[in-house]
Design a protein around this nucleic acid. Structure first.
Lengths: 185, 185, 185, 185
DNA sequence: CATGAATGAGATTTCATTCAT
DNA sequence: GATGAATGAAATCTCATTCAT
């Protein structure tokens, strides 16, 4: 019914499987069950579709990650929640996660709209608070952020490649958080 | 004079700037200063060029990383040398590093020739030895490898984005190794 | 309020600026402030709109040219009035004038409806009368008509390209009529 | 053999018959007997082809008109030669002539390269000389030029529409020159 | 009457690849 | 080996037109 959503879904599936170049817009339209021209009704160009898909996924991730946080949580608790939520999301949305990677290491990165940049500000601020409280020993905050992000990315990669059981996954996720936390505190 | 090298250099420059799709073979030939058809003397197809470039870079990296290792080094010393060499290479060869990323998160990954896979075996074995000696506490070795790799990737990203001075870079690299080492031991 | 008129105005503006091909119906609708489909209520096809616009403009010109003629005027006086009125119209309606030219040297000419052809009959008849009275020396009437028309067109072109003052324009118009008249008598 | 020439010829034929819009590049390639892509090897865009064709024709006309002029000719003789040569060319190259008209009353006019503008300078200078010698009474030169050009255009139109015999054509051409000459002197 | 989302045929253009020289 | 004109399949995108609301 919602053709725009159908197109985004089709694009996600095909882009992650065949890459940006390997996926003609005609295939996307076909997979989405709409006419060729309809795609261009919703997205002026193929590039715009590629970026819009990234923005859409990033918003989903942002929403999912933020929803459990509570004001009274300690820094560590907040960090853990962010970390765990992101990892769970990455496991439940493997395709979306791969799309983000693919997008970020493509020349399309330069087209990310300004509005999205602010999203990761909440995490940076949390880290800064941790540093101010002398809880986090490593500085500056941006460096810590880099380390955590890539750690998260590596663990996700590992979990997906090993196809662990749900229980093992849960355990690994918690342990891996303690690992990073130990590293930066 | 060596046209094959010229073509690889041109391809590296253009692929990282405009992506695989955004770079026509004709532009590569032009940038390399050879005729359009000449490119196809050296590389049967564009895909073959893309993979060959990856293999070429990976070999450079492999060579550079392995060259300082000595048989009598301790596990930690060996690990540090690997880590530091890789990071230095990533900083000195920013473009090559970005190419690797771009390649690995593209559908071309599936075309990596078998010969290359063995390369990272040396590191895995080193980690396994560390685990056997109860030096490294985190298991299994593949997980540790994932963590180290992505950490390395994150630090590289950070250094490149911050454009630090050479001295600061050196310091950060050494400290960051201690960070990971602390985490896994 | 009169959407049909709005569409014709928008079409005139855009067609003269961007050409028939360079002007999508959607742009016309937008410029006219109506919905895309509305255009097709008033004009079954784009071609029909193009022809209708020509007919509309031609009728305005015909009306404007004929309105001053009086039965008792001499041949020369009648000719002058036609000539001067046409030229004034061409100056006051530069865009419309350009549309006519553009239309006449396009493949759409072949779609001019029969009803319009008779319009120029009045002038031809006047010339024939002039020839019969041995006032006009050049023959046949069609040839004279060709010469006058293109003269008129040339003068109009010149006036528009030079952006003369109103007074100069008036003078030039009158003089230019005497020039043609001298030529054919 | 000369594919570029073949393409120009095909384009001329089809553009005058079906208009710019009505002629797909694929049809041009087909008519020229070359592959679709070959057209774009010689002309980067369809627009470039359209302009290049105009320039090509204009050069032919310019060459043909200039070739009979001799230094010792009087002003009138020079003018007559220009006039007659242009008219003959217009009759012998009806299609080319129609292309010029079509082009000049299309939005492509604005793309005429600067190099072409100077071409008509020779005629303007001749007229100026005529004015200085008090031979030509009408001023300024640009106005005279406008009048002659459009007269020429009108006569050409008339001759083509009437399909006169060669002898009649010749006579008409000479007489028509005397007509304009009378008008401006 | 009016709308504008949807259509899909078709246009322009690109580009990997070939091959005669 | 080297060249670059030529190819033609295929990709992106446009746009006149329809039709359900």
């Amino acid at each position: 019914m919602d053709k725009q959503k159908d197109i985004l879904n089709a694009a996600l599936k095909l882009f992650t499987e065949f890459g940006f170049h390997g996926t003609p817009t005609s295939k996307i339209a076909q997979e989405a069950g709409v006419a060729n021209g309809t795609l261009f009704h919703y997205f002026k160009t193929k590039d715009e579709l590629i970026v819009a898909l990234y923005v859409d996924i990033k918003k989903q991730l942002g929403f999912c990650v933020a929803k459990d946080i509570q004001a009274e949580d300690s820094i560590k608790e907040t960090a853990r929640k962010y970390y765990v939520a992101a990892l769970h999301w990455g496991i439940d949305n493997e395709t979306e996660f791969r799309y983000i990677q693919q997008f970020l290491s493509s020349p399309y990165v330069s087209m990310i709209p300004a509005e999205l940049v602010e999203q990761s500000l909440a995490m940076i601020n949390m880290i800064k608070e941790g540093i101010k409280q002398k809880l986090i020993k490593v500085t500056p905050a941006e460096y810590v952020m880099s380390i955590i992000s890539s750690h998260l990315y590596g663990v996700n990669q590992y979990i997906n490649s090993q196809k662990l059981s749900s229980a093992k996954q849960k355990q690994l996720i918690n342990e891996s958080f303690e690992l990073v936390w130990k590293m930066i505190t």
